[in-house]
């Protein structure tokens, strides 16, 4: 039984010129613990897909099922990270990390009693992403790459079963981006949460994911699903492997085809 399932899902936005179909007849099945990537031309409704799965928007047609239940309102356990780190500048890095615990139950009720434990957990998480001893700093004292690491940590602090990433590394330089691929890879390898990564970086998708979904131009449909069976754990060197290059090439061709249609 899939952990996340979309069945014939469609979403239309009302605009002044009538309804615009952002997503049409999308079918998707993601297993628990699977790392999936969604790629497609820009404006194909990738972000819409994110909002549907998390319940921030209701579909116009079809079903969204997460963890065996139909999604009717915002889910209450999803970790999210975006292209902007969206950290709160008046909170230290550590306090930014604790923010989800101030909201998600049961942590919310336990926060006062178990604060010390939570702080230790946040500090451990910071250490695993290479930011040990940065807890007392403010976000604006950190570089863009460091902020994005903190944003990842914030998305994971409450050990969510589902992690939604919307182009989280798009604003970073190439070297920092590859570094963060590895950070995410290691975190996932260790905790095995389910990930939906929306990206337009085909190498990023191929390097990180178990499966890749290719979407069509608007209205978005899911056209292909690729299983990426490159061996794990993967090293950055794999990006120069012939099989890796072939996968990226195939994806590239498919998206090119979609854009020209």
């Amino acid at each position: 039984m899939a952990f996340v399932r979309l069945e014939q899902t469609a979403l239309a936005y009302p605009t002044r010129d009538g309804d615009v179909l952002a997503l049409d007849n999308a079918d998707l099945a993601i297993q628990a613990g699977e790392f999936t990537a969604v790629v497609g031309p820009s404006g194909c409704g990738k972000s819409t897909l994110m909002r549907l799965v998390t319940g921030l928007r209701r579909p116009t047609r079809g079903h969204v099922i997460v963890d065996g239940r139909e999604v009717v309102g915002p889910l209450k356990f999803v970790g999210m990270a975006f292209q902007n780190a969206t950290l709160l500048p008046w909170r230290t890095v550590l306090d930014n990390l604790l923010l989800p615990l101030e909201i998600v139950e049961p942590h919310r009720s336990n926060l006062r009693r178990r604060r010390r434990e939570y702080v230790a957990k946040a500090e451990h998480l910071l250490e695993t992403v290479g930011l040990a001893r940065f807890g007392r700093k403010y976000p604006w004292e950190l570089s863009g790459g460091m902020q994005q690491r903190v944003s990842l940590c914030r998305a994971l602090i409450h050990e969510p079963k589902l992690l939604m990433l919307d182009e989280p590394f798009a604003a970073l330089d190439a070297f920092t981006r590859e570094e963060l691929w590895c950070v995410l890879r290691d975190l996932w390898q260790e905790q095995r949460f389910t990930v939906i990564l929306v990206t337009h970086d085909l190498r990023e998708a191929t390097f990180l994911a178990d499966s890749i979904h290719v979407m069509s131009a608007r209205p978005g449909r899911i056209l292909h699903r690729h299983e990426i069976d490159l061996p794990r754990p993967r090293d950055l060197e794999i990006c120069y492997d012939q099989r890796f290059v072939d996968i990226v090439h195939t994806l590239r061709q498919q998206i090119k085809g979609v854009r020209q249609r």
Partner: peptide, 19 residues
Amino acid sequence: EMEDVLRALGAKKMDIMLK
């Protein structure tokens, strides 16, 4: 985006305002 992050964690309007 900040609002989305919090709502996907189950935050109420009041939480979002206060935090």
